[in-house]
């Protein structure tokens, strides 16, 4: 998975969680939970959506790396080779 593909996956999932937000207006390195007004349940849905569409199971201890759109994309690119066998988008 390259960065563009990762961004697309994240944008699709966030589009379901926060449908009213225009991601183009969100700073790539901004604090995701603040920028999108996500609570812990939204964040859990994001992590779960990533698992379902990429097979990447993000453990809680890695959540701090997922704090911005950039961080999420970097994480997915870095871990797309070690994903569990699962549904691929």
């Amino acid at each position: 998975m390259n960065t563009d593909e990762a961004r697309e996956v994240i944008a699709r999932i966030l589009g379901q969680i926060a449908p009213e937000v225009d991601l183009a207006t969100v700073a790539q390195d901004g604090e995701l939970q603040q920028e999108l007004d996500l609570d812990s349940m939204d964040f859990l849905n994001l992590v779960n959506g990533i698992l379902e569409s990429t097979g990447i199971d993000i453990p809680e201890r890695d959540y701090p790396q997922m704090q911005s759109l950039d961080g999420c994309a970097r994480y997915l690119v870095a871990h797309s080779s070690d994903r569990a066998p699962g549904p691929m988008s």
């Binding site: 812990s40 349940m41 859990l44 992590v47 779960n48 698992l51 199971d57 453990p59 809680e60 201890r61």
Partner: peptide, 17 residues
Amino acid sequence: LEAQNAGRSVAARVLPA
């Protein structure tokens, strides 16, 4: 809770709430 969640996949994790 962190120890519990560490061994679980996303769908089975429990939030403090």
